[in-house]
Structures are given as C-alpha cells and as structure tokens.
Nucleic acid binder design. Structure first.
Lengths: 213, 213
DNA sequence: GCCGCAATGTAGACGGCGGACACATCGACC
DNA sequence: GGTCGATGTGTCCGCCGTCTACATTGCGGC
C-alpha cells in the first residue's frame, strides 16, 4: 500500500545535500531550529538510518546547516563591504553592519541554526569556529583601518569591535525573534546601525545639570 | 537494593519549586538549556510522572524557569536604575544597560533559558511576554525622559530604545556564549555600554575626505 | 476522632526518538 | 563480468515525553 510512491533508485544520488536542504526547510517552516533526524529522512524519502552514512550524528547535520549559513553570511557581508570599499571606513562599517542584519532577516532559518544553543560548544566543529572567527577579524580590521585614518574614536579596537558586533548581533537576534515591533525591517536596520556611529548623546552635550522637577 | 535511599515522605512537600531549582541546576552544570524531564525528576527523587501534577508539559517547566529569570532581571535592573535615579537620565540609562548585562553574566543559566529557542513562541506564556514587555517599556520611558531634558539626541524614542536594547542584548548573548575574548567581563561591559552613548565616531569629525592610498 | 475526597506521587504502557548493527543493493574499477 | 567499497534498509536498544490506572496522603466536615 504505502510503497505506491517509492523511490525508484535504491541510491539517492545526492543525499547529503538533500538532507541539509530538508533540515533547513523544516526550520524555516516551524520557525525554530528543532527538527528530528527521522523527520528529515522521511522528507527526503529514505530510512532513518540512511543519514548516518553522511553525518555521524544529529549534531553533525545541524553543524553542516550552520556552516552553510556562515559561508553565506560571510559572502554577503564581504560583497556588500566590497562595494563600499571605495568610500570611507565609516561607510564601510555601516554597510558591514547592515549586511549582517540583512542576512539574518532574509535567512532566518540559517541564522537561527547558526546560533542555536546546541552548537554553543563549537570546539567540536572547527570549521564553524573558523567562519565565525573570520567574520570577527574582518570587523576588527575594518575598525583599525578607520581609526588609523581618524574616522573612528581612539581606543582599544577590540573593544570597539565588540561593541559593534554586540549591537549588530543583538539587532539581528531581536528581529529574527520577531521583536521588531511590527515595523518594516529595512529602515529600522539602517537607523539602528547608524546609531552605532553617532551614539545616543547629542553632539553638543547640554551643560545644564538637571531639570528642576 | 535501590530503595536503600528512599524518600521518607510519600509527598515531597514542595515539588514545584524543587523542580524549577533542579532544572536550573542542570542548565548551569551543562551550560546549555537542554534537560530532560525525567532527569529533573530523578534529581529531585520522584517518579518521572510526578512533575505532571505541577507542569502540564516540559515546556511549562522551561517557561517557569524563564519566568523566574525575568522577574530576577527586572528586579536587578530596577534596583540599579533606582539607585541611579537621582542622577541624570544618561547615567540612568547606562546603569540600566550595565545591569542587564550583569544579570546575564551572573545568572547565565537563567539567561539562557529566558531566551531559549523553545520559548520563541511566547504567545503560550503570557506572563513571559508581560515581563519582557515591562522591561522594554521601562527602557523607552527612560529614553523619553532623557530626550525631553535634552540628554539624548532627538528622534523616534522607539528606534533609540531598539538600538539600546540591541546593543545590550547582543552584548549579553555574546558574553554568555563565551565570546568575550577571554577578558574580564566587568570593564568590558562598562566600556561597551558607554559606547552606546558616545558612538564610534569622534566628536569632532575629520573633514578631510580620504587617505591618499 | 474519623471519614471521604481532592491533591499528590507511583507504576507501567505507548509511540517516537537517536544511535548501533547486520544485511541488501548498487556502481565503479579491475 | 566479477569484486569490493559506498550507500541505503530493517531491526533492535535504551531513553524520552505523555497518558492512564492506582496508591498514599492531608485536610475539612461531621
């Protein structure tokens, strides 16, 4: 009965990629990086044990999805920052930040998996660590360049990078989690990332001490 | 054999709280918000079905831990911001941000559970939504006060609040996930949150266009 | 005091899960 | 055309969350 729809070929042919794709689709559909190995296998049309030929365990599949995501993120960020290369470092940093958040909003499933709690210990997945690290190094480089040319405030570049990374990552997380207060994301991203540059304090600080009451 | 160590009383007496506490301890120990209901029950010394008398399902227990965390966060933030109340709004906002991140770093287990992916859909847990919302409202209020008195730049207060919330939340997430670059967290928190106020651009923007090469 | 009942914990069953294994099928290379 | 490694199947294991029937308890009305 059930074998009416049956895979024709015994071998799938491209199971590994198909599994990654199916897993991503599941995350997309349910908006949460929780999926079952068997579920993924069913969707692809193979037995639940078949994935083991391609991924040592469930975590390996999750890591593969995350890694694909990191590569996509890096490509997007570098392409956008590359376009802004001719302009000054501040514009480049701005473009970098916007691109980061854009990627998250456009690829929420990938982003969720990339930062899922199950992958918190990345020591088991060195390629993930490398991708994340490369991103960070690129950011620090961008800030050091800007400082050297006087476009950014002086100070420990690592600390500035950490601040930028925090704002941008926090923004991405909040937007992907649907805490965007129902606004259109694009302008919100632009203005929030711009805030990183100018800060919340007015350029001309009021000298009056405090209100009367 | 195994009943040598056996609970004396048939009724635990305070099972609900004990379960929340045990769950939190497990998260703390393994550094990840993944725990098993049966595991928690074993640790408390009851049968695996006993928790069901207090929590409809596993998600309800997770939500209870998260809710406890939100109450703690709010208490911490409000107490710190209360102390800084006498000072100007900028100092108050700074204190608020530092307190937020401090809470995350000091209570990583709580923080992880509060923002775990399983609770992404908070519609099923209105008390969580309320706690998170209260936090946000407090922040917006703080910014509106500051703007009114000229301590912050003008503009949509919701957008400024979103920027502040992003930076602080991102910083907390990165620190809790151990991406703090091995630095002592306290000074890093101070300086990164301070960066929110001043931004990355120098106060006196260089007018020269760009480097020669 | 004691009794009946709601609250709370126990014991066991069920289906689904991740993982391990032996076996079936395939395709690439000799 | 035969062989062997690669890839998918079928089955088993222990653990999981949840359900249900039953045991134990504490408490309020008599």
């Amino acid at each position: 009965m059930r074998e009416v729809i049956r895979r024709q070929r015994y071998h799938h042919g491209n199971l590994r990629e198909a599994l990654v794709e199916a897993a991503l689709a599941l995350v997309e559909e349910r908006g949460s990086p929780e999926f079952t190995l068997r579920e993924v296998a069913r969707r692809v049309g193979v037995t639940h044990a078949a994935p083991q030929r391609h991924f040592e365990d469930r975590a390996a599949l999750v890591a593969a999805v995350a890694e694909e995501g990191f590569h996509g993120l890096r490509a997007h960020v570098e392409s956008v920052a590359g376009l802004a290369k001719a302009r000054d470092p501040a514009a480049r940093l701005h473009a970098l930040g916007v691109a980061y958040v854009q990627f998250a909003v456009r690829n929420p499933a990938h982003f969720r998996v990339m930062f899922t709690a199950e992958l918190a210990d990345k020591s088991r997945h060195p390629s993930l660590q490398a991708a994340s690290r490369a991103m960070h190094d690129f950011l620090v480089q961008c800030i050091e360049d800007g400082q050297r040319e006087g476009f950014f405030v002086e100070g420990d570049p690592l600390e500035l990078a950490f601040a930028a990374w925090s704002l941008v990552h926090g923004l991405a997380v909040l937007l992907v989690d649907g805490r965007g207060m129902g606004r259109r994301p694009a302008p919100l991203i632009e203005s929030v990332v711009a805030r990183l540059h100018t800060g919340l304090l007015p350029r001309h600080r009021p000298k009056r001490k405090r209100r009367k009451h």
